[in-house]
Amino acid sequence: PDLGLTQLFADPNLIENLKKNPKTSEMMKDPQLVAKLIGYKQNPQAIGQDLFTDPRLMTIMATLMGVDL
């Protein structure tokens, strides 16, 4: 199971919303991170391994779920 990750990354406004959010806007200036996020739309399971190697993803996930870290 993808634990709902498919829906989190399926939002067509995902990148724009993250660019507008004060907690994630600075991160979204990294083209490699943006490319990763776009890739998760097609393969949400890929985030599982990346969560352990890129701490920014935890902040992004929390933001998408509405959790304040």
Score class of each variant (00 low, 15 high):
residue 20 K to I: 08
residue 18 L to H: 00
residue 8 L to W: 12
residue 40 Y to G: 02
residue 19 K to D: 03
residue 62 A to N: 10
residue 22 P to D: 07
residue 61 M to H: 05
residue 26 E to L: 06
residue 23 K to W: 06
residue 31 P to L: 08
residue 35 A to G: 07
residue 44 P to C: 04
residue 20 K to L: 12
residue 48 G to R: 14
residue 28 M to K: 00
residue 28 M to E: 00
residue 14 L to S: 04
residue 43 N to S: 08
residue 60 I to G: 00
residue 22 P to M: 05
residue 15 I to F: 08
residue 47 I to T: 04
residue 60 I to L: 06
residue 9 F to D: 01
residue 34 V to A: 04
residue 15 I to G: 01
residue 2 D to I: 15
residue 37 L to R: 00
residue 61 M to K: 04
residue 17 N to F: 15
residue 33 L to S: 01
residue 29 K to D: 11
residue 20 K to H: 10
residue 40 Y to R: 00
residue 47 I to F: 15
residue 23 K to M: 08
residue 47 I to C: 04
residue 50 D to F: 04
residue 7 Q to C: 08
residue 17 N to M: 05
residue 15 I to S: 01
residue 48 G to Q: 15
residue 20 K to V: 09
residue 24 T to H: 05
residue 23 K to F: 07
residue 26 E to D: 11
residue 57 L to C: 03
residue 14 L to T: 09
residue 50 D to H: 08
residue 55 P to V: 13
residue 69 L to H: 15
residue 59 T to S: 08
residue 62 A to R: 06
residue 25 S to G: 08
residue 62 A to W: 07
residue 2 D to Y: 05
residue 57 L to E: 01
residue 47 I to K: 01
residue 2 D to A: 14
residue 33 L to K: 00
residue 38 I to Y: 10
residue 63 T to G: 04
residue 61 M to T: 06
residue 65 M to A: 12
residue 45 Q to S: 15
residue 56 R to V: 11
residue 59 T to N: 07
residue 62 A to F: 11
residue 15 I to D: 00
residue 58 M to R: 10
residue 10 A to F: 08
residue 12 P to E: 11
residue 41 K to T: 14
residue 51 L to W: 12
residue 3 L to F: 14
residue 40 Y to F: 11
residue 10 A to L: 14
residue 51 L to H: 04
residue 20 K to T: 13
residue 36 K to N: 05
residue 63 T to N: 06
residue 28 M to Q: 00
residue 45 Q to D: 14
residue 9 F to L: 13
residue 60 I to Y: 01
residue 17 N to H: 10
residue 52 F to Y: 14
residue 64 L to T: 03
residue 37 L to C: 02
residue 10 A to E: 12
residue 68 D to A: 04
residue 64 L to C: 02
residue 42 Q to S: 14
residue 51 L to N: 04
residue 45 Q to P: 08
residue 3 L to K: 13
residue 17 N to E: 09
residue 34 V to Q: 06
residue 24 T to K: 00
residue 15 I to M: 08
residue 68 D to G: 04
residue 33 L to Y: 02
residue 49 Q to G: 11
residue 15 I to E: 02
residue 64 L to D: 00
residue 63 T to L: 07
residue 31 P to T: 12
residue 27 M to Y: 12
